[in-house]
Design a protein around this nucleic acid. Structure first.
Length: 523
DNA sequence: TACCAGGATCGTG
DNA sequence: CACGATCCTGGTA
């Protein structure tokens, strides 16, 4: 797992830029295209080093003293920072380890709700699927979707060598005068007093914090060290991209997202196999709902509910429609976690093409929350995923008039079918699927919110579309067909074959990268 | 340089 | 055999 290596890698092994001294950090400006990346991780939500459970439910509520680390190199201190300097620290109602951690770089309101963005769901899956940990952020206005994963990662961080600090030229670390090394139980972690760098907190208050809790310095350094972005060719996460530029963000985070969903699926698959239920909650009977609820309660060490059947008489489809509030109302102690976990499952299922490809036409979409209907999310983020073939093979495509394609075999109601296939490890064949290029293109065109930057309709009624990003479309096609060497040259050659067959044609006024479906195929 | 057009060949189901 | 991938040559913007 590349991202695991990335996160678990001792700071001393992280690829570094040349050693920098603290004053050099301050000279750094936000114009550094990578410098803002770490800001998007809510490091304030790093967990305590113990007790991975229970699930924290107030991660977004705490009122930590506001220490904005990013101001260390911001040429213009943010307003929030200025305010901090004028306000005394809030009461310490949170673990002291938070005290040295920067708060969210963005106001909470800047984060869209988890339901508002499929991408966020992916991030949630990234953080949650693997560890089965805290899910509350999924259903809360918490900005900490990313942080959820960070929190989980911390629990399995290897001990940090005491000298790692001095070998880690993280922009936010320093080997200066403020480093403390404190052994803590099994973990040996070093602590850096960021306050001395920022000169914003009194030495006294900071000292008391150091005495109580060490910081998760190692992970923080890994995250803050922007060199990994360069190494993985990642770009800083732009908030606006969450809202409007989904496709771009997906491109940036493809490896992470892919791994996240992979983990989510594996976990779901395992439980599905164990419980003999579909991965698609929509297909669960009431009894299966109960089985899943019990399993989830046990998984998270939540108190068992004796009269579960009385609380939940719904089948899976109805369960999926319940709000978090309803879950909490029925099960105040565990409702939130159960609901969040259910969201994960729904997302894991939504990732599967059988659902996606008919989401536009089948009633299945209507059964799911809006955030759940996110067609074609599998199309390009499984670069390193073993699920590539899964995406490819069980993918009936949109039915079209007069096509030779098999009619759609699956809908939401048979998501169980797809799931069973996955659970059993079944595949419809080796290599790529039988999907035709023109069908695939229509798939892409059918989800402009996801693929709009790669391919889009010019005139839907006439079947005219334009390939905006030939490389990307070819890449997607190559993945779908399990043809890594696919490029636009070959793809376009295939398209041109359709000229003879009357499937596609060039537009009347020939334009580069603009094609047109012939009549029956444009519907 | 990227895209386009089309012939030819090959592998796969 | 259909289909798509691949390689190729040559042309165009």
């Amino acid at each position: 797992m590349e991202y695991e290596k990335m996160l678990y890698m001792p700071a001393s092994e992280m690829p570094h830029s040349p050693q920098l001294k603290p004053h050099q950090f301050q000279a750094q400006t936000p114009t550094d295209q990578y410098s803002s990346y770490a800001d998007n991780f809510d490091l304030s939500l790093l967990p305590q080093e113990s007790a991975p459970a229970p699930i924290p439910t107030t991660v977004f509520q705490y009122n930590a003293p506001q220490i904005k680390v990013e101001c260390a190199w911001d040429s213009q201190p943010p307003l929030q920072q200025q305010q901090q300097q004028q306000q005394p620290p809030a009461p310490y109602n949170i673990p002291s380890s938070h005290q040295l951690i920067p708060p969210p770089a963005y106001p909470h309101s800047a984060y869209p709700s988890p339901q508002s963005s499929p991408l966020q769901s992916e991030f949630a899956a990234y953080g949650l699927g693997r560890f089965g940990g805290s899910y509350d952020s999924l259903n809360s206005p918490s900005p900490s979707l990313e942080a959820v994963s960070i929190k989980q990662e911390l629990h399995i961080l290897p001990p940090s060598p005491p000298e790692s600090n001095c070998e880690t030229p993280s922009p936010r670390s320093s080997c200066g005068e403020s480093i403390k090394a404190e052994p803590l139980d099994a973990d040996i972690e070093s602590l850096i007093d960021l306050n001395s760098l920022l000169q914003q907190q009194s030495v006294h208050s900071t000292q008391s914090l150091q005495d109580t809790k060490p910081d998760h310095q190692l992970l923080r350094e890994c995250l803050e060290d922007t060199s990994f972005q360069k190494r993985h060719n990642l770009k800083p996460l732009a908030l606006e991209s969450f809202i409007g530029g989904l496709a771009e963000v997906r491109g940036d985070f493809e490896p992470v997202i892919s791994l996240a969903l992979e983990h989510a699926k594996r976990e779901a698959d395992a439980i599905c196999a164990e419980l003999q239920i579909s991965q698609d909650p929509n297909g669960w009977s009431p009894a299966q709902v109960h089985a899943w609820l019990r399993s989830t309660l046990a998984q998270f060490r939540l108190p068992p509910v004796a009269d579960l059947e009385l609380h939940f008489c719904e089948n899976g489809a109805a369960l999926a429609l319940l709000s978090e509030e309803e879950f909490v109302r029925r099960l105040p102690e565990s409702g939130s976690t159960l609901h969040a976990q259910l969201e994960i499952w729904k997302m894991a299922y939504a990732d599967q093409p059988a659902h996606q490809q008919h989401s536009q036409q089948s009633a299945s979409t209507d059964l799911w929350p809006a955030s759940y209907a996110m067609p074609n999310f599998d199309l390009d983020y499984n670069e390193d995923s073993e699920d590539d073939d899964d995406m490819d093979t069980d993918a009936p495509v949109a039915p079209l008039n007069g096509s030779s394609t098999s009619p759609p075999a699956t809908t939401a109601s048979n998501g169980a079918t797809a799931t069973v296939k996955r659970v059993n490890g079944g595949r419809t064949g080796g290599g790529g699927s039988h999907i035709h290029l023109w069908q695939f293109l229509k798939e892409l065109l059918a989800s402009p919110q996801v693929n709009g930057t790669a391919i889009r309709w010019i005139d839907r009624s006439k079947g005219i579309f334009k390939i905006e990003d030939s490389v990307r479309v070819a890449k997607l096609w190559g993945r779908r067909k399990n043809r890594p060497a696919m490029n636009y040259d070959k793809l376009s050659r295939s398209i041109r074959q359709y000229y003879k067959k009357g499937i596609m044609k060039k537009t009347e006024r020939s334009q580069r990268l603009v094609y047109q479906f012939c009549h029956p195929y444009s519907q």
